[in-house]
């Protein structure tokens, strides 16, 4: 059972007992207002006793989390991002990037980066969810920044609209991530990754934090509901079956042309060779 709830119950029991004791003497004229005052004091007192240790524990826990996050940061991140997350020549400052950014980068395995010559890519995360939460808490404690959206905020099934999401996606995202969210090329070897199999929370975080080359999409440019619509549309593309056979990567005419030449014309030429050879 929750600690705070237990204290509440205790307080209630004490108050009930007091009432019983006083109710025996209630014929006294001054009893009623006096009782009220006593009762109020008691309640206030008990609550203050009950609440104080709770707040203290929470903030203690929080600072412990931040402390843990700081430790992880010192060991794993500070060599690039600086001892105080102030950034360096090779890595940006993390002051003010917020918990959402940390969650996105670390939980998708992009950070820590193995090879700086390449774009950070999605891979198995190095840290456990608890460690990531600690890191996020530490970075969030440096300066305010976008928070990790809660499950309630991410209920895209309820709050999203697929068709609207598609429209938004095609205007705001498809030019980099491709119309079917399969990814695409950017300048100088950078690329926009495929969005297939990405957690909804990470899609959301990417939009509000603008990781790597991706720009930020503020809540006025794309409202939170619209963001959920985009997520819902991506998820619908992900689960949609193929209507016309092998999807050929959903990247358009290049693979189609290749297949037409190799498999289409290739097999027909093979058959033509059979057709033109003499039977034995």
């Amino acid at each position: 059972m929750d600690r705070a709830l237990r204290l509440d119950l205790l307080g209630e029991v004490i108050i009930m007992a007091l009432f019983k004791w006083i109710s025996g003497k209630r014929r006294h004229r001054a009893m009623a207002p006096g009782m009220l005052v006593v009762a109020l004091f008691l309640i206030g007192g008990i609550y203050s006793i009950a609440a104080t240790p709770d707040n203290a524990t929470a903030s203690n826990a929080r600072s412990a989390l931040i402390e843990e996050g700081k430790n992880i940061f010192m060991r794993g991140c500070s060599s690039c991002h600086g001892l105080n997350a102030e950034g360096s020549g090779i890595a940006p400052s993390l002051i003010g990037v917020g918990a959402a950014s940390v969650d996105f980068q670390v939980a998708t395995g992009r950070m820590p980066m193995a090879d700086m010559s390449q774009q950070a890519m999605r891979k198995k995360p190095v840290y456990s969810p608890e460690e990531i939460a600690a890191l996020a808490a530490y970075v969030a404690s440096l300066a305010p920044g976008p928070a990790i959206p809660t499950a309630e905020q991410l209920n895209y099934e309820r709050d999203g609209n697929v068709a609207e999401g598609g429209e938004l996606f095609r205007t705001n995202c498809a030019m980099c991530h491709n119309a079917a969210a399969q990814g695409g090329a950017l300048t100088a070897g950078k690329y926009a990754p495929t969005l297939m199999g990405v957690e909804p929370v990470h899609i959301y975080e990417a939009m509000i934090t603008g990781p790597q080359a991706m720009p930020v999409f503020g809540d006025q440019a794309i409202t939170p509901e619209e963001k959920l619509s985009i997520i819902k549309w991506i998820k619908s593309v992900e689960s949609e079956g193929s209507y016309g056979g092998a999807s050929l990567g959903k990247v358009g005419p290049v693979t189609e042309g290749l297949l037409g030449w190799v498999l289409g014309l290739g097999s027909l030429i093979g058959i033509a060779v059979w057709l033109a050879t003499k039977a034995r």
Binding site: V216, Q220, T223
Partner: peptide, 20 residues
Amino acid sequence: TDPGNRPLRPEDLEVGAIAH
């Protein structure tokens, strides 16, 4: 905004943001 037709204020765009 496109789509949405909502007017924008400068503070709706943070550094690094884009709006269509």
